[in-house]
Simulated scan of single mutants.
Amino acid sequence: MSGKETLEDYVAKKKAGTKSILEAYREWARGDIELRDPNPPRSFLEVVVRLDYSLWFWTVVSVEAVTLLLVAVSSTSPILTPARYLFGSLFVLFLPGYSLIRALYQSRELSPIEELALSIGLSLAIVPLVGLVLNYTPFGIRLAPVLTSLAILTTALSLLGLYRKYSEIVEVVYES
Rank of each mutant, 00 (worst) to 15 (best):
M1Q: 04
S2H: 12
S2G: 15
G3C: 04
K4G: 10
K4I: 14
K4A: 15
K4D: 12
E5G: 05
L7N: 04
L7F: 06
E8V: 07
E8P: 03
D9T: 11
D9M: 13
Y10D: 14
Y10T: 07
V11W: 11
K14Q: 14
K19D: 07
E23V: 13
E23M: 10
A24L: 12
A24E: 06
A24M: 06
A24D: 09
R26Q: 07
R30G: 11
G31D: 04
D32Q: 15
D32I: 07
D32T: 07
I33Q: 11
I33R: 08
E34Q: 07
L35G: 09
L35D: 12
P38N: 15
P41N: 09
S43H: 13
F44C: 03
F44K: 10
F44D: 02
L45P: 02
L45H: 02
E46F: 11
E46K: 03
E46R: 01
R50S: 00
L51K: 04
L51Y: 08
Y53N: 08
W56M: 09
W58D: 00
T59P: 00
V60H: 03
V63G: 09
V63L: 14
E64T: 05
A65S: 10
A65G: 05
A65F: 07
V66C: 07
T67D: 12
L68G: 12
L68N: 11
L69D: 08
V71E: 07
A72Q: 08
V73M: 02
S74Q: 08
S74V: 04
S77E: 07
S77Y: 09
T81P: 06
T81Q: 14
F87Q: 14
F87G: 01
S89Y: 14
S89Q: 06
V92W: 03
P96S: 07
G97A: 05
G97T: 12
L100I: 10
L100P: 11
I101P: 12
Y105M: 09
S107P: 12
S107D: 12
S107N: 09
R108V: 05
L110K: 05
S111T: 15
I113P: 08
E115S: 13
E115G: 10
S119I: 02
L122S: 13
S123V: 02
L124I: 05
V127P: 04
V127A: 12
L129S: 11
V130L: 13
V130I: 13
V130P: 06
G131K: 00
V133L: 05
L134M: 02
N135S: 10
N135A: 09
T137L: 00
P138R: 08
P138M: 08
I141A: 01
L143Y: 01
A144H: 01
P145V: 00
V146C: 00
L150Q: 04
A151I: 01
I152F: 15
L153N: 09
T154F: 10
L157I: 01
L159F: 05
G161P: 02
G161Q: 02
L162Y: 00
L162V: 03
Y163L: 09
R164K: 13
R164F: 06
K165L: 06
Y166R: 02
S167Y: 11
E168W: 02
I169V: 09
